[in-house]
Design a protein around this nucleic acid. Structure first.
Lengths: 204, 204, 204, 204
DNA sequence: CATGAATGAGCCTTCATTCAT
DNA sequence: AATGAATGAAGGCTCATTCAT
């Protein structure tokens, strides 16, 4: 077979992303289980079945693997929020997100990742990605709380900004519980959010 | 002057605890700022103005310093909860604890310690201390929520166990926000708890 | 159009040498700037706009690139010395070489290469090339110093062998100064050589 | 035996310097033999009979060991120049230094060190130390050449600044020859310097 | 011929911990 | 009790080189 210069570009890119994702996945698993610092690159390599050289071929630094992970997570979140808002607004949008969030928490591979970041949070690049995601979520919540208040579907004795903070506390707290392998019962978070917002209880 | 044996020992014990506490305080500061793994014993020694030898004289292991810290924190919490329950019951007790908790969050030296534990949580000794404290708090909350429900001062459409979980989520979430140097405005957590519990808004 | 085999080969050879030289040139630049060990093949490839595979296609080893460089330098020196001796003899020949040498030193790309070799000098292949060049130069100098002494144009109180050593010291010292980015003023070396040899000062 | 706080200070300092020097000596030997980059800290440790931890206890970095070496060399040079000038002036001072310098070159342990620096010369700290030493030497030479010219003991057709440069070329060139394990015959450099300066030949 | 992903030995450095003084 | 020099296992990362495409 004959290869023109750079011909196999498409195939290569495919392979490249496949392998990159495999490494990321293994890194995720180990970061979640042991935290960033206690996870060694050697161990990730072992788990991913690659050599150390390959790891650093894809990620110049162990930290860069974490950042890649966070970035893709943030991206997914943003995408998801957009998708939700395409279909629902107000309380419904928020509850839809709660549901999606609960699913994430249930995923055993994703729980525990909260702590992976500990100690590296202050690193500018990490902080940046985290902030981006936090901001996107905050705005989503605030935006839809405002709509809900206008529609009269939630309490109106507390300004949306404060309500948004409260909701995020619930989210973060629930995430942390999940991280501590305390099972979060399905629907629990949604109920809590409803109670907090003073919206009518579900009827399903 | 002549010192009786007992006296000298008392002085020694005093010195011992003083120094031990100084080390713990420095360890706390650094663990909070950089996390357990990224804090080196050398750096703690430097900050505490002692030699490495002295450090390991007081704590056989770096982890032991963390455990000492957690244990004293747990002890303080238990003491505090007991004190509160001596004076108040039901919602009032819970809100009193919320207030104390908020004070802790405001203390810049204490915020951030939440993450210090990351990666070491699974270590049996650490997990044990954490569990003890968590259990004490949980029981305190559940106990007083039950009383509150009996008194009709909070919603009764949700069982106390679930309410307790929700309250703890708020606590943990707020603590995490504080750790991320997002200022938690005074009284905010109390309001959120009231909203969640369906208890009447404060009038003070 | 149709190309006869021989023709194609000529073209190929042309391309081959062109590329080889491009690599050598980039290697030279980087070796000069950072030394042999601190220059990475990856960096040379980047500078030359080629892939690592290509580099190792032309040079089986990083060291081989250095050797290629040294060899072509030695070859050039030998050619130059021969050329000079075709036209001049005695002091004039030496001074002509001094002039050529000074030109080389002035070339910013060539200065600094002196140190590139450090650490690899002892490697047989490297040592061989260096020795060949050093010997050629030494013999050239000695030969022409002898002629000069016969002609009475330089001091005769010191045997040519020792004079040759002295002259080479001046050369090497000047080269080193140039390498340390200390500008060597034009003609300075020639004057020094004249002073050392006791030959009459220039009158141009 | 009873030790007061910090009692053994004197002994400790003694031991400290002894060991530090031992490491420095071993580093010197290996740097000289293989160059800075090709010398591994592990190899120095092996040679000095210490652990890697100890090495980095004395020198935070491999580079710092080199800098320590250069600094002590520069210091020694400065001390020596001062000593010489206490006893001699003019040509005599310069020739005294030449003699001392030749001795250094003869020392097999010291030859070759010239190249150890290659590749690291540009590092600010290294460059600084080197520059300090070079400046001290330059000034010493210039100063004494000026005196010599006043006394009429050397040629006066060339300004001292240029003569100083020439002399340094000879020095550097000779040092390089020595580094290339080409034996520099005793007195050779002195003769060359005399010839260059036009001072009367020695009569001893 | 050219490409660049993959390799893995090897390097510098860190850091918890020990122990002679 | 206090000190800090010494230790050495372990980790992150580099880089020359190979080879399938």
């Amino acid at each position: 077979m004959h290869y023109a210069r750079g011909m196999a570009r498409t195939v290569d890119q495919h392979r490249y992303h496949e392998r990159r994702n495999a490494i990321l996945q293994e890194a995720h698993r180990q970061f979640s289980a042991s935290g960033f610092d206690r996870t060694t690159t050697a161990s990730i390599c072992r788990g991913a079945g690659i050599s150390s050289g390959t790891f650093f071929h894809y990620f110049p630094t162990k930290l860069d693997a974490l950042i890649g992970l966070l970035a893709s997570g943030a991206e997914a979140t943003v995408r998801q929020l957009a998708l939700i808002e395409q279909q629902q607004k107000g309380v419904d949008a928020i509850l839809a997100y709660v549901k999606a969030f609960e699913n994430e928490l249930t995923d055993p591979s994703y729980s525990g990742f909260v702590h992976a970041i500990a100690g590296v949070e202050q690193v500018p690049e990490v902080a940046g990605v985290l902030l981006d995601e936090a901001r996107a979520t905050s705005e989503f919540i605030t935006r839809n709380l405002a709509i809900a208040q206008e529609h009269g579907t939630i309490r109106d004795d507390v300004p949306v900004d404060r309500l948004a903070v409260w909701v995020r506390w619930l989210f973060d707290g629930a995430a942390q519980s999940a991280a501590e392998t305390i099972t979060v019962e399905a629907g629990g978070l949604a109920d809590a959010v409803r109670a907090l917002l003073g919206s009518p209880a579900r009827t399903d």
